[in-house]
């Protein structure tokens, strides 16, 4: 019993239910010079409502792993299961936010969000569907641009709409591949707040790749570090035990912050 109290993870996730389970995952890319084994023996369990960030050297296979979770990339060995059942291809239970906003530039922000909403709520009336879109666009601060074409708004705004689109389909898991990598640091901070805010309300599981150590610490319950490829696997996992809701200021002033930061940087530099 006392063990339980000392383990903050268990306080936070009463069900302790495993959302995503990666078991002995392997990925091989055939190349002209023979097979290239990107990932091998990769094991990772992600719990329900957890926020995981993934860091690792460029080219180690982070995107490969995430796109396999999304079902967009074939699995060469091992398996990935969501709530106990193996995934077969992509699906709306796993929302994805890509590095580039990848909105359809010929559609309005509303129509972009609607694309997914239509799929997930096929029986709702037009009004209800529109309200759902508006709700999420409002959440990400895009309430004044429902009818603007995606090509007419800035990158940061596009990524906001991307977040709205991903959340609007009510996924169980949200997969994010360096979603803020292309934004300036001010916008990045704003969008981190937006993301955490919506994540908090929607109670979903999030897996996010980032190359920014501070971002990784600020957002995550656990930071997952990947070893360098080839045959990359999980090298280390660092639980971040700051209370939520977090503010940047409070975290920067916290003593543990530098401990965490040092841990991650030491890992990356070795």
């Amino acid at each position: 019993m006392s063990q339980l109290i000392h383990n903050p993870k268990i306080e936070k996730f009463p069900s302790n239910e495993v959302m995503l389970d990666l078991i002995d995952l392997k990925k091989v890319y055939p190349t002209p010079k023979g097979d290239y084994v990107v990932l091998e023996n990769l094991n990772l369990q992600i719990k329900k409502e957890e926020f995981i960030t993934i860091i690792g050297h460029s080219g180690c296979g982070k995107t490969t792993m995430l796109s396999m979770m999304a079902g967009l990339n074939e699995i060469s060995g091992g398996k990935i299961s969501v709530l106990g059942s193996s995934i077969k291809g992509p699906g709306p239970d796993r929302g994805v936010i890509f590095q580039s906003p990848s909105l359809m530039p010929w559609l309005t922000t509303m129509e972009n969000v609607m694309l997914g909403v239509k799929k997930v709520y096929p029986h709702a009336t037009k009004k209800q569907k529109e309200d759902i879109c508006k709700y999420y666009l409002h959440k990400v601060g895009m309430e004044s641009s429902f009818y603007k074409r995606a090509s007419e708004i800035s990158q940061g705004e596009q990524q906001r709409v991307g977040i709205a689109r991903a959340f609007a389909i009510k996924p169980k898991v949200l997969l994010l591949d360096e979603p803020f990598g292309m934004l300036d640091s001010l916008t990045r901070g704003q969008l981190q707040d937006v993301l955490i805010d919506v994540w908090n309300k929607e109670k979903i599981t999030a897996v996010m790749i980032t190359h920014d150590v501070d971002e990784a610490i600020f957002l995550a319950d656990r930071v997952v570090m990947m070893t360098s490829g080839p045959k990359a696997k999980i090298g280390d996992v660092l639980p971040i035990e700051f209370e939520r809701p977090r503010t940047r200021k409070a975290i920067l002033e916290h003593d543990d912050y530098y401990k965490y930061r040092k841990h991650l940087i030491d890992f990356l530099e070795h």
Binding site: L72, G91, R94, M104
Partner: peptide, 12 residues
């Protein structure tokens, strides 16, 4: 491919 991936994820 980003657009195609979006279509795939949304299962259009």
């Amino acid at each position: 491919t980003d657009y195609i991936n979006v279509a795939k994820v949304l299962r259009l």
